[in-house]
Nucleic acid binder design. Structure first.
Length: 327
DNA sequence: ATAATTTGACCCGG
DNA sequence: CCGGGTCAAATTAT
């Protein structure tokens, strides 16, 4: 990235905002390196998307349209910032402090709740290669390896086992990290909008009406609670048609919890985080972040709404459910 | 036909 | 020997 320059203060400022965003994402990625691969992948996807957008802005010199929703990116600012998030594994190597830790080859275990039949996945392609009964556990454990193991030598694997108590919970243990670059055709990427889950849908709607954006001490003026709203069929706009693998609007930074859980329906924008404590920009950044977080949330909800309802037995491939945590 | 899953055999460390 | 993990042939899904 070089000198943006463009006489246009408006524009460069926006680009700066983007860069700040990227910077923050990289920080988060760093924190989670070696951690949950899903999270890392998600972050990487975001960085990619935002970077592309930035490039596009610079290239077309335009911008202005601050509101050009990140529709092109699909994924965006994760809710987790300085917080290790509830994502942390249940066992082994919990994510250490913000200090640099080596790419531990360890494992990362997370518990996710599942609701539907295996359609939504965690973004990676897995191939089952075994199943075993585990003593002491009523449920078998499935063994999966990256689909691109042979073609790309990706060594990532994961084990999935239904939790003893709650049959809707699954313990997923990841081993190794993905080194593959899978290509999912845009088509295969969005095979979602099929059987919308009415529950999630209504949740989405009620959510839209209760949302409030707290622009916190940023800038002056009456931080009017930005009127965010999204239409149910917002799916399309969220589906990344970008080039990045980022498959489906599934698995945001979920993990833990069951069902759709949207803690505080209020978005707190931490001004501290990014060093962009400057001023004029904050306004934008605030909006940007608010919008981003909302998208993350919406993505999650969309994923949920696209999941078929419980309708019997689905003991196969677990489905990642949605749990969103905004702090 | 190709790709993915199923499932018992096989392997290996404890 | 035992339990957990992997292999691979058979089977099923695309």
């Amino acid at each position: 990235m070089e000198s943006v320059v463009d006489g246009n203060g408006r524009g460069s400022r926006l680009v700066m905002t983007e860069l700040s965003h990227i910077k923050e994402l990289v920080n988060q990625l760093d924190v989670h390196l070696g951690g949950c691969p899903e999270l890392c992948k998600h972050l990487a996807a975001q960085i990619f998307a935002v970077t592309e957008r930035s490039i596009g802005m610079i290239r077309s010199g335009n911008i202005d349209g601050l509101k050009r929703s990140a529709g092109s990116a699909g994924l965006d600012s994760p809710p987790f910032s300085a917080t290790p998030s509830p994502l942390s594994g249940v066992s082994d190597m919990p994510f250490k402090a913000n200090k640099r830790k080596r790419m531990v080859k360890g494992k990362c275990q997370v518990r996710v709740s599942s609701a539907g039949g295996g359609a939504v996945d965690d973004g990676f392609s897995w191939r089952k290669y075994g199943q075993k009964e585990i003593l002491g556990s009523p449920n078998p454990r499935g063994y999966y390896r990256c689909t691109y193991r042979k073609t790309q030598g990706c060594a990532a694997t994961k084990q999935v086992q239904r939790a003893d108590e709650d049959p809707t919970l699954f313990d997923v243990t990841y081993h190794g990290t993905h080194t593959c670059v899978h290509h999912k055709t845009a088509a295969a990427t969005n095979v979602q909008p099929a059987t919308p889950n009415p529950d999630a849908r209504s949740l989405l709607q009620s959510l839209s009406s209760s949302l409030t954006v707290n622009t916190e001490g940023l800038t002056s003026g009456p931080q009017q609670s930005t009127p965010f709203s999204f239409s149910s069929p917002a799916v399309s706009s969220l589906t990344p048609q970008g080039h990045y693998p980022s498959s489906s609007p599934s698995t945001p930074e979920n993990c833990f919890g069951q069902g759709v859980t949207v803690s505080p329906s209020r978005l707190e924008l931490s001004p501290a985080t990014s060093e962009s404590s400057y001023n004029p920009m904050n306004q934008f950044e605030a909006e940007w972040r608010a919008e981003s977080e909302l998208q993350t949330m919406v993505s999650a909800l969309v994923a949920a709404s696209s999941m078929p309802e419980h309708d019997g037995f689905e003991w196969l491939e677990p489905n990642f459910d949605v749990s969103i945590y905004f702090v």
